[in-house]
Computed example of a mutant assay.
Amino acid sequence: MIIILTMFLLGILLGFIGAGGAGFVIALLTVAFGFPIHTALGTSLAAMAFTTLSGAYSHYREKNIVVKMGLIVGISAFFSSFAGAKLAVLIREDTLHYFTAAMLILSAVCMLFKLMISKDTTDIKMKKNQVWIRGIGLGLLTGLLAGMFGVGSAPFIQLGLLIFLHLSLRQSVGTTMLVILPISIGGGLGYVTEGFVDWMLLLKVLIGTMTGAYIGAKFTNLAPKIVLKIAVIATPAVAGLLLLL
């Protein structure tokens, strides 16, 4: 029951910022509940497939998703995420622990740079072939990172959508939820085939995060932009620090 309640509260936050939350789930499962890192990675990615389905639907209803760009990035990320999960089993547990933490903290730093320093680029128009090339490239890279380190790469996806595909902040938040769906399915399948998914734990995580993510997505359009920016940056940073501790 404690795990379900914890995941419910986390789900509200994840739905709000447009993240699948695998990094934070991994941090809580390993640090707070003592599960092995590979089991936490596999279970969190599998759970993220269902969590993002709930959050993505809610964001779609709120008109925060650019469907075409989300599908281009997401489908290419599916294949690289599966490959990344296969590579992750070759990495030692203690090494993978620190790699995952480092990736989360780096993603927060990158997002801070973009949101606080860079100018708005939503009015920039791109050619059709640029959308495909950039979208596929972004999907392959973020999918590989997600599969290898067990995190959904939400900050990296959001950063790519903001910089390379020129979406607004709210569009990038919503579209990221759509992109994470195939990433988590691909990565989750990779970990399932390697035997690193705890099915009972998966059920508990799902009950909490799916319910919370649907509710949290309702607040994305209501919150001031500065609050959304702070939440997007702070979430992966805190998860990374938890893993390091």
Rank of each mutant, 00 (worst) to 15 (best):
G15P: 10
I185C: 00
L203E: 06
L96Y: 13
A77D: 15
I233G: 08
E62G: 04
A231G: 06
F156W: 15
G212K: 05
V25D: 11
F33Q: 03
I215P: 05
S118H: 10
G186Q: 01
C110H: 11
G160W: 14
N129M: 12
Y191I: 04
P182A: 04
S172L: 00
T193W: 03
L115R: 14
L178S: 14
L189F: 10
V31I: 12
G23T: 03
L138N: 04
V238S: 01
L9Q: 01
V232D: 12
M69G: 02
A213K: 11
S172V: 02
K68V: 15
I230P: 02
A102D: 13
N221K: 14
A83S: 00
A83E: 00
M1I: 10
M103T: 09
L162P: 02
S81P: 07
L201A: 05
A237H: 06
G55D: 13
I65Q: 13
S80V: 01
M1W: 05
G55R: 10
L41N: 13
V227C: 11
G160L: 14
I183W: 06
A27T: 05
K225V: 15
I215H: 00
T39I: 06
C110K: 07
G135E: 00
I230E: 05
T211C: 15
V73S: 13
L28P: 00
S76Q: 15
V151F: 00
K119L: 10
L13R: 00
V131P: 00
T122W: 00
F164R: 03
M126E: 12
T176H: 06
G190L: 08
Y191E: 07
A234K: 10
K218T: 14
I117K: 15
L10Y: 05
N221H: 11
A19D: 07
I183T: 04
I26F: 07
L206S: 03
L145M: 08
T175D: 07
A146S: 15
A47N: 14
G147Y: 02
A213W: 10
G15K: 12
L145N: 03
K68I: 15
L5P: 10
A213N: 11
M200Y: 08
T121H: 07
L115V: 15
A27W: 08
S118L: 15
I233W: 12
T6K: 04
L181P: 07
I163D: 04
T175M: 09
G186Y: 06
L244D: 01
F78C: 04
L162K: 01
I75T: 13
I3Q: 10
G42Q: 08
F156K: 10
T95W: 11
A56R: 08
W199P: 09
G42T: 03
D120E: 13
L244C: 00
F8P: 04
G150S: 09
M210G: 11
M69N: 12
G160D: 14
T122G: 01
W199N: 08
L241D: 04
L106E: 09
V109R: 07
L201Q: 06
K86Y: 01
L165R: 11
S54H: 04
G212D: 11
